[in-house]
Simulated scan of single mutants.
Amino acid sequence: MRKNLPILSVAFFSLLSACISLSAKKQEVLFNGKNFHGWEGDTVKTWRIEDGAITGGSLTEKVDHNYFLCTRKSYDNFVIRLKFKLSGTEGFINTGVQFRSVRAAKPDYEMIGYQADLGDGYWASLYDESRRNKTLVSPDSMLVKKILKRGDWNDYEVRCENRRIRISLNGQQTVDYTEPDQSIPQKGLIGLQIHGGGKAQVAYKDMVLQEL
């Protein structure tokens, strides 16, 4: 038995190395901090890159309608982690992260699908954008008040496994939802939103997606 230990050890570490390598291949940096490679949307007027972050909206001019910056690739089962900072001076200050979503045909600036919502009354909730048009799950307001860093960078995580969706804000889970409607698609684009109707600005950075 003892003579076989070195051989077993080599085989074990080779297998472990292969598993680690496979896991690393599935992890994807969605934003490189420099350009919009892999994304599409209005990168002339609405979306820009400032200090290594994707930034949308304006603090001096009212955003006329919803705008979305979307990945060109679709995803089904994954964990996405990112940082966001939302600020505003007037009107409806709201944003969110779309997932398992598609671009709408009319109006063409909208998206259809799930949204990990952000903004007063919606922080870290799950909304169904341009489909059922309602909040599917709202988190405990006292928990959100305790963990939210207003006007500063916050950590956001969305985990999608089959029909189960979980959302976490700054390390605290706020949503655990399983989709009961079998007709709702469970694959689609990732999108970043700036909501219309207010003088608001959002920034996103450190976006990493791990396929499951």
Rank of each mutant, 00 (worst) to 15 (best):
residue 32 N to H: 09
residue 46 T to N: 12
residue 47 W to C: 07
residue 66 N to R: 06
residue 70 C to H: 08
residue 79 V to Y: 02
residue 84 F to S: 14
residue 117 D to Q: 15
residue 124 A to K: 01
residue 75 Y to Q: 09
residue 55 T to W: 08
residue 26 K to T: 04
residue 24 A to C: 02
residue 67 Y to D: 01
residue 22 L to E: 13
residue 20 I to H: 13
residue 47 W to D: 01
residue 136 L to Y: 14
residue 21 S to V: 15
residue 74 S to Q: 03
residue 129 E to P: 10
residue 128 D to P: 02
residue 76 D to G: 11
residue 42 D to T: 06
residue 94 N to W: 04
residue 28 E to T: 13
residue 52 G to H: 11
residue 50 E to C: 11
residue 75 Y to D: 06
residue 33 G to V: 05
residue 21 S to I: 09
residue 90 E to T: 02
residue 65 H to S: 03
residue 74 S to R: 06
residue 103 R to P: 04
residue 72 R to I: 06
residue 72 R to Y: 07
residue 41 G to Y: 14
residue 44 V to L: 03
residue 102 V to Y: 05
residue 88 G to V: 04
residue 44 V to Y: 14
residue 120 D to E: 08
residue 122 Y to E: 01
residue 75 Y to S: 14
residue 100 R to T: 05
residue 37 H to W: 12
residue 81 R to Y: 04
residue 113 G to S: 14
residue 121 G to V: 06
residue 36 F to G: 10
residue 120 D to R: 02
residue 52 G to A: 03
residue 24 A to L: 04
residue 57 G to N: 11
residue 65 H to F: 11
residue 125 S to E: 15
residue 123 W to S: 05
residue 131 R to D: 05
residue 20 I to S: 15
residue 30 L to F: 13
residue 133 N to V: 15
residue 123 W to T: 03
residue 18 A to R: 07
residue 115 Q to K: 11
residue 120 D to S: 14
residue 68 F to Y: 03
residue 99 F to N: 00
residue 119 G to N: 15
residue 46 T to H: 09
residue 108 D to V: 11
residue 130 S to W: 14
residue 33 G to P: 05
residue 88 G to I: 07
residue 128 D to G: 03
residue 82 L to M: 13
residue 112 I to M: 03
residue 123 W to C: 15
residue 44 V to T: 07
residue 21 S to W: 10
residue 122 Y to P: 00
residue 41 G to K: 08
residue 115 Q to C: 02
residue 54 I to E: 07
residue 67 Y to H: 07
residue 19 C to P: 07
residue 61 E to V: 09
residue 67 Y to A: 13
residue 26 K to M: 10
residue 43 T to S: 10
residue 120 D to Y: 11
residue 37 H to D: 01
residue 36 F to L: 06
residue 90 E to G: 15
residue 55 T to R: 10
residue 20 I to M: 12
residue 135 T to Q: 06
residue 98 Q to Y: 01
residue 57 G to Y: 00
residue 16 L to A: 15
residue 79 V to A: 09
residue 18 A to W: 05
residue 129 E to N: 10
residue 77 N to C: 10
residue 55 T to Q: 13
residue 82 L to R: 06
residue 96 G to F: 00
residue 60 T to A: 05
residue 123 W to L: 11
residue 73 K to I: 13
residue 92 F to T: 12
residue 86 L to T: 04
residue 130 S to M: 13
residue 42 D to L: 15
residue 101 S to T: 03
residue 99 F to D: 00
residue 87 S to H: 07
residue 87 S to G: 14
residue 118 L to P: 01
residue 84 F to Q: 02
residue 101 S to R: 10
residue 93 I to G: 02
